[in-house]
Amino acid sequence: MENRADGQADERRALALASLIGVDWGSTGLRAFLVGTDGLALAERATSRGASTLSGKEAFAEVLEQVAGDWMRARPDLKVLACGMVGSLHGWLDVPYAVCPANAPALAAGVAVTPNGEAHIVPGLLYDDGELPPDVMRGEETQILGALALRPELQGASCIVLPGTHSKWAQVRDGEVQRFATHMTGELYAVLRQHSVLGRLMESGGGFDEAAFNDGIDAARVNGHLGVGHQMFAARTLGVTGRLPAAALADYLSGLLIGHELRAGLAWRGEAGLDQAPLALVGSRELCRRYELALRRYGDVPSLALDNTAPAGLLTLARAAGLAPN
């Protein structure tokens, strides 16, 4: 009972200090935050009821009520600002993309409010130069703005990498996202492991095999010109021939795919003249650690890692949109 009382007291303090109720609402999950004036989360709640799991617009209001309804009633003066797939065609509200180059005011200008006023929703970001196929993001733009707010040295010129199911590489100059590129590294890994011949020999549960992961990185770095489609098959043949144990094959494949992402991403970064600019990783500690290991194999590229920048980004956008005090 004492621990529960302490938790309730902590949440009351968080409510008293909060400037915003922020929501990072992706396809498969939702995280809600009480955001302080410094852009850090004072309290956090989570649910697996992401946008892709819901049917009907009314379901979004129900989930928000379940997760943060008591916060909203306790502090009716606080605005609710949500980013991510909640603003997609299959989300609560289809919010049009802002167009690169874009900064916080440009994104804030596109914020839309739900029909009954429960929440404001951040637009995603579109890059389309009319030559290459267009690229889009929803949610990552808010994390990028959060990284810029938390680490001002990134605002002048930087490359921000957001590892994940669909990894994003963003070029930043003068506080604007100039352009970005998506790599389906995480999804490709999951599909290959679960639904292809490569996964049949793989065993799990043995812990992270850093040596096998590095072998995959080096295969992409040294022989990437052979093509990822060819090199992926080694995640089977190395097991068939006994060159790698079954428990190491998944980490070899992970290293190979991340290695190809870095091979392309670092070249793209260099072509933009950002090879001497800071490189920041934004994401879970475990995943960022893999990217840090991979960057070392590519010449020890210096980087900094940030964990959860969504609350800071949501506060930045809320202030730019006049939804939270400066």
Rank of each mutant, 00 (worst) to 15 (best):
E2N: 12
A5I: 13
D10R: 15
L15I: 13
G22H: 06
G26Y: 10
T28Y: 15
F33R: 13
G36M: 07
G39R: 09
L42I: 11
R45L: 08
R45K: 15
A46K: 12
S48R: 13
S48K: 11
G50W: 05
S52N: 12
L54A: 03
E58Q: 11
E58R: 06
A59Q: 02
Q66W: 10
W71S: 09
D77L: 09
K79C: 06
M85A: 10
S88E: 10
W92R: 03
A102F: 06
P105N: 11
L107A: 08
A108D: 02
A109S: 07
T114Y: 09
G117F: 04
G124W: 04
Y127A: 11
E131R: 10
M137I: 15
M137T: 11
E141Q: 13
R151G: 08
E153D: 08
G156N: 01
A157H: 01
P163F: 02
T165S: 08
A170R: 00
D174R: 10
V177P: 06
Q178P: 04
R179A: 12
F180R: 06
F180W: 04
F180P: 06
A181T: 14
H183P: 05
H183Q: 07
L188S: 10
L192P: 11
L192E: 15
L201K: 14
A219I: 02
A220R: 03
G227M: 14
Y252V: 01
H260S: 02
E261C: 04
E261G: 01
L262D: 00
L266N: 02
A267Y: 04
L279A: 02
V282N: 00
S284F: 06
R285Q: 00
Y291Q: 01
E292M: 03
R297Q: 00
R297W: 00
Y298P: 00
P302G: 11
D307F: 02
A312C: 05
R319L: 14
A320K: 07
G322T: 07
L323F: 08
L323C: 01
